[in-house]
Amino acid sequence: MYIYLPVALTSIKVLLPIGLGLLVGLLSGLFGVGGGFLLTPLLIMFGIPPTVAAATDSNQIVAASTSGTYAHWKLGNVDFKMGLYLLIGGFAGGLMGVQAIKVLRATGNADFVIKMTYVLMLGIVGTYMFIESISSMKGKKSEEAKAGKESKTGNFLKSLPFQTRFEKSGVTHSALLPIIFGGFVGVLAAIMGVGGGFLMVPVMIYILRMPMHVVVGTSLFQILFTCIEVTFLQAYTNHTVDFVLAVLLLAGSTIGAQIGTVFGRKLKGEQLKVFLAVIVIAVTIKMIFDLTLSPSILLSQSGGH
């Protein structure tokens, strides 16, 4: 059965967006990522105009992350205090990133910078997570060397002002830390046009030292607010949210997020990290292929205004 999408102005098989939603929702519940870095390119591949794909995706993430946050909150896995600080930083960073893109557009280098940022960030994050989680799964061999290094960084972090205790995560940090790193992710997310979950998750694991299960819940909580803002702005200024497509996607993704949360409880933190790393690396490789293989058609639909 086919359905016509009133904003995308195209027709699509009903089961396709439901299936895609289910897949992305599963990742969302498992890893705390919105999945925009996967779903938007897939939607474009199936004939949805790029601007509609990105805007509708954020609408769908609102539903999936609500569903996921709710499930994780019930399990006691959301650090609201940390989420709030990250949000403040992310919001400020997002504003800066949008300005940076405007400057890049004016100089005509926007696309190059966006693509390169994408490949580099995905590549670095994926590879680092993969190596780190594999080596910690094998056994903590370099524990001593690590401990020495950690205490140095730890001392520096402890010397920062505004130290505060994050109960849920069981860590004490300067309030500046989540705000600054939230801001950094916000800048990159705005440049790349994604929610930034796949960047925020490693920041929470490796820099804020939060336990994996709290990371997932907190990341979803944070993504929820970012995507509410993006959905509204896209609908209001660009008229690019396709409600019908969003409903089909979220029918799949909200259920996927619940299944993901249940699965996530059965997997260890390290296993989750390896899975996420593999997915991120796969997307990076796909992007490298797209960049180097000659396309069959040299024109594509414009981004719209």
């Binding site: 709710y70 409600f243 969003a246 909200t254």
Partner: peptide, 26 residues
């Protein structure tokens, strides 16, 4: 509605997504 009442359309989209997310969660 998407083209002429962007603000309302945006709010409905967000509320529908929130509602569905909570509903399915519950």
């Amino acid at each position: 509605m998407a083209n002429n009442k962007g603000a309302l359309y945006g709010m409905i989209s967000v509320i529908a997504a929130l509602g569905t997310g909570f509903g399915v969660g519950m």
